[in-house]
């Protein structure tokens, strides 16, 4: 996991050296949906999101996104039944979700105003790793899921080459054999660093 993130981070930082590009670093708050919500319903305040964008033409950017969202919930001691079997214990439920997406953003007002809205769409994979600690045992389930990620947001100009951003992203992940789609909504706040 660390190696994937580090490689992606180095790649993203490296490409920002080119002109007409920007790097978005944001803090995501994740609201679990669907199967992920059934497993752990708590909002995630642990995560990071990174995007590199190159400007294809005025008002349109294309690029890559990666990040890390950690969903966690402690389930207090309770019995779990299946057939005639009952097991009682405390469960610690962790889901690590790492999106790796290609994306495009559209800025209808370009950068003419102080606050400029944007919409975007990303497509790629979501690496989901679910671990349940139950007693002294850990049950882990991992999957690479197809993911579609629409987003909306607003950019606030601070000074040339630096903007603040506020946005919402929906990570719609598709079922795999090992794990149902781990979809979530994230609210992101962060900064956009652009080359001048």
């Amino acid at each position: 996991m660390k190696h994937i993130l580090l490689s992606a981070f180095i790649l993203l930082c490296g490409v920002t050296l080119y002109s007409q590009s920007s790097f978005i670093l944001s803090y995501p708050m994740g609201l679990p949906l669907g199967d992920l919500h059934d497993y752990s319903s708590k909002t995630s305040f642990r995560g990071i999101s990174m995007e590199f964008l190159g400007h294809a033409k005025p008002g349109v950017a294309v690029g890559l996104e990666t990040g890390w969202n950690v969903f966690y919930e402690k389930k207090n001691k309770e019995p779990y039944k299946q057939g005639t079997t009952t097991i009682t214990g405390t469960q610690y439920r962790y889901t690590n979700a790492v999106p790796i997406l290609v994306e495009s953003k559209w800025y209808p007002t370009e950068e003419k105003k102080k606050a400029n809205p944007y919409v975007g769409l990303g497509v790629g994979t979501l690496f989901a790793s679910r671990s349940t600690d139950f007693g002294l045992y850990r049950i882990t389930n991992e999957a690479w899921q197809f993911c579609v990620r629409p987003e909306v947001g607003v950019l606030f100009s601070i000074e040339p080459g630096l903007k603040a951003m506020l946005g919402a992203k929906y990570y719609g992940a598709f079922n795999t054999d090992d794990l149902d789609g781990q979809s979530f909504l994230s609210i992101n706040v962060g900064f956009v660093f652009s080359s001048l």
Partner: peptide
């Protein structure tokens, strides 16, 4: 930029803190 990066390392949540949280009771 550097101030935002530590977010990455604050990601790992806690686990069990007390021995009784690791106890399991199985019956069949």
């Amino acid at each position: 930029f550097a101030c935002l990066l530590p977010l990455l390392w604050g990601c790992y949540p806690k686990g069990a803190e007390y021995t009784d949280e690791l106890d399991l009771v199985y019956t069949n």
